[in-house]
């Protein structure tokens, strides 16, 4: 009935352009509420963190003022990035504390331009404020400035990634916690194992970040910025201050 009246008395409706504010706003509101809830749960050590970057050409960038890990391992592993096999350096920590953390990724959305999603955490003090257990990162490259990388205790270089030990079940080390290849028992995939590792002014690029144990991220912030400069600058950009 309504359709019939409209057909008889009104011209054809003009094609609707622009944003469906109601729908977008509803989506954004729900999403924002979910993120706030998740941020709260992460802060309360309830949720773990998974991040996988499926862009071979655009790994995420990160930085932290300091990272101290207990039972540390670095091992070469193959991994699939958007269907392409790549060799990456997987860093694993039984537990780690960080002084601030910043993670960003820039995506080009065609005519809309480039946008940067940035995740930051830290309480603003110059001390470790983030904690995580059973964490691993698939790294493309990284730099550690000033004191750089300091490996303490019994350190090994040259063992297979699959032979690295980090996490424990009870008092026994878990087998192959970094998920190193087990074909040929890990031959050709080299690793570094240390009792403790300290990293200063760490920044670089990664394809994956996973925290399977507890994680605490005070003042967790997730924001989207337009462009690639200013607030949208990548976390590993030279001009970016380390996130406290």
């Amino acid at each position: 009935m309504t359709t019939s009246v409209a057909t008889r008395t009104s011209p054809a409706p003009e094609p609707r352009n622009g944003t469906r504010w109601g729908r977008a706003g509803m989506l954004a509101t729900v999403a924002a509420a979910a993120v706030v809830g998740i941020a709260t749960l992460v802060d309360q050590h309830v949720l773990a963190l998974y991040l996988d970057i499926d862009s071979e050409a655009s790994p995420a960038s990160f930085n932290t003022t300091a990272l101290v890990g207990q039972d540390v391992g670095f091992g070469m592993v193959p991994t699939s990035v958007n269907g392409t096999q790549k060799s990456v350096l997987r860093a694993g920590f039984a537990s780690a504390t960080l002084d601030g953390f910043c993670l960003s990724q820039t995506q080009s959305l065609g005519a809309l331009g480039s946008f940067t999603l940035k995740v930051t955490a830290g309480n603003g003090t110059s001390a470790t404020d983030i904690s995580a257990s059973n964490a691993s990162f698939d790294l493309v490259n990284f730099t550690a400035a000033d004191a750089g990388i300091v490996l303490s205790g019994q350190d090994q270089i040259g063992l297979a990634t699959s032979d690295i030990t980090t996490t424990k079940t009870g008092t026994s080390y878990d087998s192959n916690p970094l998920g190193g290849p087990e074909t040929s028992y890990g031959k050709g995939w080299i690793g570094i194992d240390a009792s403790k590792g300290s990293f200063t002014k760490l920044k670089g690029k990664l394809y994956s970040a996973r925290v399977l144990g507890n994680i605490s991220l005070p003042r967790l912030s997730i924001k989207a910025f337009s462009g690639t400069s200013g607030d949208a600058s990548a976390c590993d950009a030279a001009t970016t201050a380390y996130q406290n």
């Binding site: 730099t143 550690a144 004191a147 350190d155």
Partner: peptide, 10 residues
Amino acid sequence: DALQFPNTTV
């Protein structure tokens, strides 16, 4: 601190 690699790129 057995092994020290300052100002290091990996």
